[in-house]
Amino acid sequence: MRANDPKKVSGELFTLTYGSLVAQLLKDYENVDDVNRQLERMGYNIGMRLIEDFLARANPGRCYDLRDTADKIQQAFKLYLGVSPSIGSWSPGGDEFSVVMETNPMAEFVELPEHCLGLRYSNILTGVIRGACEMVQLEVMAWFIADQLKGDNMTEIRVKFVKRLEDAIPAGED
């Protein structure tokens, strides 16, 4: 019945568009590491704009600690990708956590051919998280530690808090 559900189908539009984009990058770059980097950069650009859309749509309120931030990231995955990832594996210091997806909608129709095993297909997501957090004064690092396309039984992104960014005041305006 999925084919008759227009919502589901427009989700597929984005999945397929993203697939065509990744295919184009693989054609343009010889090295998969460059593709991974480019995907991250695109995600970063998207994240910087997406955060504004997210604040407007979801009106999520202020975050008081990283756990709040993690909840908001979970909420954003639900809003934009239609999946509810779980948040967990907190580091003892509380500065690092995992976003775990049972199914990854970005990779729904994807199989990695053998010569692309180094490709982090959904790497755009790590960039989106980094870009979005940076716009709310949080510097974070994000990277994949498990990927269903590589045979893991779930997809897991690790997010690490680096530092709070202070508003930079342009020289001469203080």
Partner: peptide, 18 residues
Amino acid sequence: MAEEAVFDFIHMEAVSYV
């Protein structure tokens, strides 16, 4: 779900990439 926004963003990045 706000998937139409996601499509817009991916499209914009595709344009700016090429």
